[in-house]
Amino acid sequence: MSLKSLTKDWEPMSYGFLDASAKCEIRRKTLKAIAVPGCQIPYASREVPMARGWGTGGLQISCTLINPRTTVKVIDQGADDSVNAASIRRFLSRVSGAPTTTDTLKADLIQSRHRIPEEKLREDQVLVLQVPNPEPLRPVQPNMSIARQMHADADYGRMWLQLYEQIVRSGRVMQGASYPSLVHGRFVMTPSPIPRWDVPKMHMAKHLTILSAGREKRLHAVPPYTRVEPLVFDDVPYQVEEHGQLTCTRSGAKGYFMNEIPQNDGTSTYEVSDSELGIKTIQKADGDTVELGDTWYQDGEMTQ
């Protein structure tokens, strides 16, 4: 064994920003996360040149997966052009040379903050969700050691109680985003703060979802064709946001998740949250040839 064999050639920076040992660890932990769907796996969560809480968890997964042939799409609350999305997209492209896109259909790797695109994802696509708080039990058990024991015991009674109390107090489940969901019948996860609208998209989906919380140093995953069932009582059906009848004022798209834009006169207008879907709808109306993929929702109804 020579010294040469133990060292590597000098490089100005590691490809994809993260060094080899960071990637190695994330690879091992992601494999275990896929093997135990919905279980939060602790990982080291290295420093990246971005403040914790702004998508560092998702960024580390993307940096590990990326190569020069990976087409990357980054979205922030459905929009490709918000500051967070644009910055992460530019960063990923700069550290890897990977091509970027805003088109859901053309992307191999989609890093997202709090939304799942409206167009159905395929079997070869990976969705990386940025997660601020991966622990569904935190509102009912702030001690994370006890919460871990509760996960180990599948002790989710307090989750049900929390939902029951919301119904008693308000007449309906008030949980808007990060609706607690049972993965593969065993682990309750918080599917990052995606709206209730997006949770059914994860159930038996074709794509792989990796959820990573950089600040909390945990990741979990939902493999393709895996059951993801929101916690619901038998007599209180799961309800998504009532956006099915809304029409986007800018694009005319109807039946998708909308952003509410308050107006000066107290009313609201709406625009479609998935900005690329809005753009495609406008292009199609203009007569351009655009490929609009199948959407999970049609006319505001979930299709399966």
Binding site: K8, D9, E11, P12, M13, S14, Y15, G16, A20, K23, N67, P68, S93, R94, V95, S96, G97
Partner: peptide
């Protein structure tokens, strides 16, 4: 753009 080393591309 950085170019992946052979090791990086392989792994």
């Amino acid at each position: 753009y950085p170019i992946p080393s052979e090791f990086e591309a392989r792994t």
